[in-house]
């Protein structure tokens, strides 16, 4: 059983919801990202989505764009991102790590080299935002052969027939995009989320987590009530942005930054 499946099963069996924070690798620098990841686990994160920085993040809103720009200003690459996972694993062999990003850095590294390195550093899942299942054949198969989970998005605009195909391609969990728009946008239409999640439940047995538009405890609770868990990105990345420009980042500053995940953990627990 994959690490993601194990964590998911354990959570769902005890009636708990998944909490999945997202942060950009190398924002504001590699060392801090690693510390933030450990701190996120301490705050109750079940899985961590680690963003691979890319110069043209066209599915992301302004907050994550700025996070990516901060990371790229440090010269962070996909190779560095994988190295962070490697170092994280030296202390934590339990928490699943999902790499989330855009296809071009992976194409440039080469699918085979990327898959091999992901296996070596113990990556658990990969989500490529701009690679729909129809374009994913080669990379998808390589990741599967390497027992790495392949995670895809389902959007409010996704046709039901297509949702079935996406669910068939997905392992680990299905990521439901809560709104039409980019990461960090405001979520307003709770009713349509509920309706769409109910429809998705009939199409797949995979755990369904909701992301985009979750910014605090209240929105996390509301979404967790309808699903198996939540992804929270922009709200965390905005806080990480406040660490930029500091010479040395103290442990207190790290825990103050990840504090929001504690709050969201409590809110999500109350939804269970």
């Amino acid at each position: 059983m994959s690490r993601i499946a194990a964590v998911t099963q354990r959570a769902l069996q005890k009636g708990s919801k998944l909490l999945i924070p997202y942060l950009v690798a190398g924002d504001p620098n590699l060392e801090t990202t690693k510390k933030l990841m450990h701190s996120l686990v301490d705050c109750g994160a079940d899985i961590i989505e680690l963003g691979i920085p890319f110069s043209d993040p066209s599915s992301d809103g302004p907050v994550i764009q700025r996070g990516v720009e901060r990371s790229l200003a440090q010269g962070t690459s996909l190779a560095d991102t994988l190295q962070i996972v490697n170092e994280f694993r030296q202390q934590d062999q339990v928490t699943p790590i999902v790499l989330m990003g855009y296809l071009n850095p992976i194409e440039t590294m080469g699918y085979e080299a990327f898959t091999q390195r992901a296996v070596d550093v113990d990556v658990d899942g990969v989500l490529v935002v701009d690679m729909p299942p129809a374009e994913s054949t080669t990379l998808h198969q390589m990741l599967r052969n390497a027992s790495i989970d392949t995670i895809y998005l389902v959007a409010p605009t996704t046709h039901p027939d297509r949702a079935v195909t996406i669910a068939q391609h997905s392992t680990g969990y299905l990521y439901y995009v809560s709104l039409k728009g980019v990461t960090g946008a405001a979520l307003t239409d709770h009713a349509s989320v509920q309706k769409n999640i109910e429809a998705l439940r009939k199409l797949t047995d995979l755990p369904i987590v909701i992301g985009f538009g979750i910014k605090d405890g209240d929105s996390a609770r509301a979404m967790a009530q309808q699903s198996d868990g939540v992804v929270i990105g922009s709200a965390l990345v905005a806080r990480i942005g406040e660490l930029t420009g500091l010479d040395a980042i103290s442990l207190e500053q790290i825990t103050a930054t990840t504090d929001i995940i504690k709050e969201v953990r409590q809110a999500v627990n109350s939804a269970s």
Partner: peptide, 14 residues
């Protein structure tokens, strides 16, 4: 060529 966009845009492209 091909179609490499986020899932939200797939329906619009189709």
């Amino acid at each position: 060529g091909g179609i490499f966009v986020g899932e939200t845009l797939i329906a619009a492209v189709e």
